[in-house]
Design a protein around this nucleic acid. Structure first.
Lengths: 214, 214
DNA sequence: GCTATGGTTTCGGCATGACTAAAACGGATG
DNA sequence: CATCCGTTTTAGTCATGCCGAAACCATAGC
């Protein structure tokens, strides 16, 4: 219906992403920081998106996507994650190198091409970082997960997801062969032992980026 | 160096395309018609491109790409044609359906992804319409060819290329199983006989879109 | 040589999209 | 109830790309 430009898609995506792994609503100022724009820019775009029926916003309050807005947002996220999965699965990219390319292509790929990519990949449920790929109808299957940083020593589990917010963390973990599916025990704060008995020393930033089974 | 927006790339591509199969330079008015814009818009963009050193233009004269401009143009054409080849070769598109998708992606795909696609396809020399794919350094291998419409009755040869200007022609020829590589003899004006003895009645538009061996 | 004509350019302008700084504002907190 | 932080309004900027109308140039025809 409404066209939804590249920038608008980025706003929707960011608003959606904020609620994906934590449940509080995002405020205009937080959104401004995340997007690297001035607060007044957020107000302006929010006005447009609200006028298009994509989000609701009581003045001076937080932002909440409408059903339509959420669907639009998950569509962008779906494109992004399928593209990332494709780049890693078929095009020889490493998982720490796909973000920028996906960031661009997610705004220009057609539904048809996306469907073809999806079929070639065998309809994957997760992207290379372990993030769930929303289905075309907006459904997101997200397993219960906690941050490694918030788990008690002695906890045994499996890595479910690595946040792709910090590229340096991704490179570091890729070099350590830690990724979605890795089984571990938390031996001490910031120290994990893998299934093969090897141990790994993590940075604080890494522990705050790794989501694991409860 | 210079950024070269999507619109600028379309201008360069169109200027280049005009000289690819015929040798006269394009005039501003012809360019305006091809792009579907007003002549004054052409003048303006030409000014920018000339300022960026991508083309030369004596006032009231025709347009000619500089070496840099030609390289920039062939890069766009290369992206377009590799994407088309990929869509047909791996993604299940028919050759008459790829143009629009390529038109969009050609402006956003990265060099790295393009190289990966190129490698997967085995470094093809031609796209699905028979157009040569320029190499990364701008080299274009173009075989001698003539329009079917300009060939004398009795001529025997091979279809080299179908212009993708007119989608209706592409669909028509696809349905008739005529494409690059098809061998034929021109039995009468607008009538060709294929290698298996079957004959085909062509439209004028088709005959003016098919390039064949000399 | 001169004029008419058709293509080209200049000019003034518009629309869109996205962004900003500064000032005004509102609501919760102390 | 005053303060302060976050939000909104206001009033612009900047870039891109486009247009119509009027001025302009070069050349073909007389």
């Amino acid at each position: 219906m409404t066209h939804t430009s590249g920038a608008a898609e980025d706003y929707l995506k960011t608003i959606y992403a904020h609620t994906e792994w934590q449940s509080d609503l995002i405020t205009p100022s937080a959104l401004a920081v995340r997007l690297g724009v001035a607060p007044s820019s957020v107000t302006e775009m929010v006005k447009k998106l609200a006028a298009s029926g994509l989000l609701t916003h009581v003045p001076y309050g937080p932002l909440a996507l409408t059903d339509t807005g959420r669907l639009r947002a998950t569509a962008v996220v779906r494109r992004h994650r399928l593209i990332e999965t494709w780049l890693v699965g078929e095009m020889g990219y490493d998982w720490d190198q796909v973000h920028d390319e996906a960031e661009i292509l997610e705004h220009s790929i057609s539904d048809r091409l996306l469907a073809a990519i999806n079929a070639r990949l065998g309809f994957p449920a997760h992207d290379p970082h372990g993030d769930p790929i929303p289905s075309a109808d907006g459904t997101v299957l997200r397993p219960p997960a906690v941050l490694l940083a918030e788990v008690t020593v002695g906890h045994t589990g499996t890595v479910l997801r690595i946040s792709d917010r910090d590229p340096a963390v991704l490179r570091e973990l890729a070099a350590d062969l830690i990724g979605p599916g890795t089984e571990f025990t938390l031996a001490a704060a910031l120290t994990i032992v893998l299934a093969d008995g090897q141990s790994r020393q993590l940075t604080t930033a890494a522990a705050a980026s790794i989501w694991v089974t409860v």
